[in-house]
């Protein structure tokens, strides 16, 4: 049933210069699913998202298939237009360009929605400011979410959406990630939960270091990325628990031992 996959990554090898960062990675995400990737610093998490987006500076081998189409070598903007969006961990500042202008240049949704979302994210004043110029860590993350909400992608990459965000704002960010993923809290009870789940179309892939965001966003599948491959696939909460208790050392041990005796299922 391959056609059901929204995103399928096959035997992905990604090098930066002479260094092979991803070494034959496989990944499948279905519509309506949200996955999370954990992994130690330098394991290639951001590289994976950047390679799927098509950013420069990476030598990519293997295949990236989105909605059944091979996108491995198409330009970034075409991937975005097909329905892939990304929240950057550390986006660049764009001098002289107001946030409103950037959103209006890129958004699918209309301006009315923009003002409502901006208000919800406490970003109304920021619409008239230069993109990311002098923004705090939390302001950057909220501005990224705002841009994505208006871009309205089918597959969302969130690269450390909670890094640099204070606790109060993590809840807000979590709430709007759920909006983005079409998983906002259900207020009307006309439909059953089952029906609502079935209607979910948006998919996501979240990179998280601390895992805090998982307290606000339900994630279906968790992975550990290690030495350029997916080392483990499991319940994200179990993974988080293991990392919090034992650190990635436990994962390394498990990975070395080929999965026997490890906490989670080997992928």
């Amino acid at each position: 049933m391959k056609d059901e996959y929204l995103l399928e990554v096959k035997d992905l090898h990604v090098s930066i210069g002479a260094k092979e960062v991803l070494q034959g990675l496989n990944l499948q995400i279905k519509k309506g699913e949200v996955h999370a990737i954990f992994g130690p610093n330098g394991s290639g998490k951001t590289t994976l998202l950047n390679a799927i987006m098509g950013f420069a500076g990476y030598t990519v081998k293997g295949r990236i298939i989105f909605e059944g189409k091979d996108i491995t070598h198409i330009p970034i903007n075409e991937r975005a237009q097909m329905g892939i969006g990304i929240s950057f961990q550390r986006p660049p500042a764009i001098r002289g360009v107001r946030l409103r202008k950037l959103i209006e240049a890129s958004a699918k949704r209309n301006g009315k929605t923009l003002d409502a979302y901006a208000q919800g994210l406490n970003l109304t004043d920021f619409l008239e400011r230069e993109v990311n110029v002098g923004f705090s860590g939390g302001e950057i993350k909220r501005a990224e979410l705002l841009q994505l909400l208006l871009q309205d992608p089918d597959l969302v990459f969130l690269d450390e959406p909670e890094s640099g965000v204070d606790l109060e704002n993590i809840a807000l960010i979590g709430e709007y990630i759920n909006h983005l993923l079409g998983r906002q809290r259900i207020r009307n009870q006309e439909k059953t939960m089952k029906e609502l789940y079935r209607e979910r179309k948006k998919a996501g892939l979240i990179i998280t270091h601390t895992g805090h965001i998982l307290e606000y966003v339900n994630v279906d599948v968790g992975y550990i990325l290690m030495q350029g491959r997916i080392a483990c696939q499991a319940n994200p909460r179990d993974i988080l628990h293991t990392i919090r208790e034992c650190g990635f050392e436990e994962c390394f041990r498990c990975f070395r031992e080929g999965g026997t005796g490890g906490t989670h299922k080997r992928h």
């Binding site: 950013f55 330009p75 970034i76 764009i94 240049a105």
Partner: peptide, 14 residues
């Protein structure tokens, strides 16, 4: 280049 790619990731052409 980083700025161009940021905007391209929002769907703008190069």
């Amino acid at each position: 280049q980083e700025e161009v790619e940021y905007l391209m990731a929002r769907g703008l052409s190069e």
